[in-house]
């Protein structure tokens, strides 16, 4: 049986812009703010076309005043709007974090549930294209650690569109992290597998539901954004040796879909977590801990392939040496087997 659907391959950048445009068309409360998101269309392309369609009132280039526009987003959202704000690089959260973790994240709680703060904070993460230690971080755990915000991070354009739509409609603040190497902008080192078919009509991908993107029986590889693609590549390498790896794309860090991970590890008995964020106190420890807490029987000690606890170097050989990749996942599997 063949279904005659036309392939409509989009980059994550295009998929994000499409989701935003579709919500803006049906919901007047939605507007976008950030640096260079207007006529330029965002330095990572995810607001292209929005300024032309919706104009400067709803697609606002801001001054370089992160404290101002992040705080303003909290205020506007509390007053019934649905702002989407872009923090150009997640690395710059430091200049405006109070508005994020103390106010945006807590005002619902502080108002006894009365005030809702439906902000979407979209921000770029990740390295691999030589942009140094203040432009290349992921900081997944930093945001996921702090209560009150949902945190999503797609690995492909289909999820990007669906998660963005869900994020805009969500009544909570949602941090939408997009990895630069998956954006489909050539100069950032494009990951082809992130460019997938995206339906034209609007749809939601539920926030807090992981996806099993490859099924397997011997090993569970858990990742998010770039980690998923490394995991898929490693799984293909392992398949050549007859090892069948299951790959899980978390898609969201908050809420975290522990059940899907635990179910998979119950089946495989082996776990590797891939994360481009700093290794210690991170997503990788949270996942491994979640499995351990449930007493899931393991055939080998779980492993993590994460970024070491050092700043990200500017120079490509050093950066590539330190970043997670498929080979390191395979090596982690070998280590696991040697010690088991």
């Amino acid at each position: 049986m063949t279904v005659a659907t036309k392939e409509r391959k989009l980059t994550i950048a295009r998929a994000m812009a499409e989701a935003i445009a579709q919500e803006m068309r049906v919901d007047e409360r939605v507007f976008v703010m950030g640096e260079d998101i207007g006529p330029l269309g965002g330095v990572f392309g995810n607001t292209r076309g929005l300024h032309e369609e919706f104009g400067s009132e709803r697609v606002r280039d801001t001054p370089i005043s992160e404290t101002a526009f992040m705080g303003a987003a909290v205020g506007a959202a509390s007053d019934g709007m649905r702002p989407i704000v872009e923090l150009m690089f997640v690395d710059f959260f430091g200049v405006c974090f109070d508005a994020i973790y103390n106010l945006m994240a807590k005002n619902t709680y502080f108002s006894g549930g009365e005030v809702q703060v439906p902000v979407v904070l979209m921000t770029s993460t990740g390295g691999g294209y030589s942009d140094a230690g203040q432009h290349s971080q992921c900081l997944h755990a930093t945001f996921a650690h702090l209560p009150g915000m949902k945190v999503v991070a797609p690995s492909n354009a289909y999820d990007a569109k669906g998660l963005m739509t869900a994020a805009i409609r969500d009544n909570n603040p949602v941090i939408f992290m997009f990895h630069k190497a998956l954006q489909g902008m050539g100069w950032l080192g494009t990951e082809k597998d992130a460019i997938v078919h995206v339906p034209e009509e609007s749809y939601e991908v539920p926030i807090g539901k992981a996806a099993v993107v490859r099924e397997g029986n011997d090993l569970t590889i858990v990742g998010i954004t770039s980690g998923v693609h490394h995991g898929l590549k490693a799984a293909r390498q392992l398949a050549e040796r007859g090892i069948s790896a299951e790959v899980i794309d978390l898609r969201a860090l908050v809420p975290l879909d522990r059940a899907t991970v635990i179910e998979s590890v119950r089946k495989t008995g082996r776990l590797i977590v891939v994360d481009e964020d700093y290794q210690s106190y991170g997503v990788s420890s949270e996942i491994i801990c979640s499995v351990a807490e449930q007493g899931v029987p393991l055939k080998a000690a779980p492993q993590r392939v994460a970024y070491p606890d050092i700043p990200i170097p500017f120079t490509p050989p050093m950066e590539q040496w330190a970043l997670p990749n498929a080979d390191k996942i395979v090596a982690a599997y070998e280590l696991m087997e040697k010690h088991s």
Partner: peptide
């Protein structure tokens, strides 16, 4: 404590570029 991370970065296919 960081030494362990150097070793694991090396072992796991980082190589000694």
């Amino acid at each position: 404590q960081l030494s362990g991370q150097i070793d694991s970065a090396r072992i796991r296919g980082g190589g000694s570029a």
